[in-house]
Design a protein around this nucleic acid. Structure first.
Lengths: 136, 136
DNA sequence: AACTCACGAAACATAATAAGTTACATGAAT
DNA sequence: ATTCATGTAACTTATTATGTTTCGTGAGTT
């Protein structure tokens, strides 16, 4: 199942942008991510909608960070990207009345929910400025 | 991203099988899951490899539970199905030397790992007999 | 022995979706 | 006017869970 690598990619870029004097073009960012400018615009657009970055057209245009790294958490970016679900595990979608199936799906669903809460809480505790200090 | 519903489906079926006198045919199970006998054989085959069920060919053949429900956890079945990863979130797979990218991927990777451990621990605490008692 | 039932397995088709790509419109600076 | 860069629509590709077809094989039944 193909993974959604947008969170990883966007965090990477946001931190780089913090060091930049000039606006970063989609082309430039695409090169850094080994992808395509259109993919960059599409994904960065999600962050712009939430105000984390701004974009300017034309000469000298491109993308700029609009919020300090210390004020952005992994959770913020995760949410901005609007991921639907974090898990590859799903529930059977039979719309039956079978009480066993319901019990199974409730158990799995509750566990997934708890695990997701755990993950998102952790994401919420990490601000991007911490990652610039991290040792490689 | 399409979800993997095998865990949900298999738990559902295993619990039903506990009540059955006769062996359940793939055809019968497929009807319960609103799917196809071949899909059933394919998925149940994973459980057979770990000894949770047995299969018999020919007349009167089919699938039987081979281990008491109280001795099977959600984790056992999850493992038997051999899921690769539980998350839709992945890391950028650029094989760069960029320390920022590495720091980002380590942070996300650690969080995913912790969340997965949390989920699997919980799966390991639930035996299938508990689900038969659960109220709908 | 012939027949039927049911699993085993290979090969292929379908559906969903993240990502990649092409093409063109629009706006801003030179 | 020209060039640069984003905005967006439309299409293609890659991946993978699931679905489907088909044939082989073993086990009871008649």
């Amino acid at each position: 199942m193909r993974k959604d690598s947008r969170l990883s990619r966007m965090l990477h870029i946001l931190i780089h942008m913090d060091h930049m004097e000039e606006a970063a073009t989609s082309e430039h960012i695409a090169t850094m991510l080994n992808t395509n400018p259109v993919v960059v615009r599409r994904t960065m657009g999600c962050l712009r909608e939430q105000g984390y970055v701004t974009s300017v057209k034309g000469h000298g245009g491109g993308w700029r960070l609009n919020v300090a790294l210390k004020d952005i958490t992994l959770l913020d970016i995760h949410n901005a990207l609007g991921e639907s679900s974090v898990f590859t595990i799903g529930l059977s979608d039979e719309y039956t009345e079978c009480p066993i199936e319901k019990a199974v799906n409730r158990e799995i669903g509750d566990a997934l929910k708890a695990s997701e809460d755990f993950l998102l809480t952790r994401f919420g505790e990490v601000t991007l400025d911490k990652l610039t200090l991290a040792k490689a």
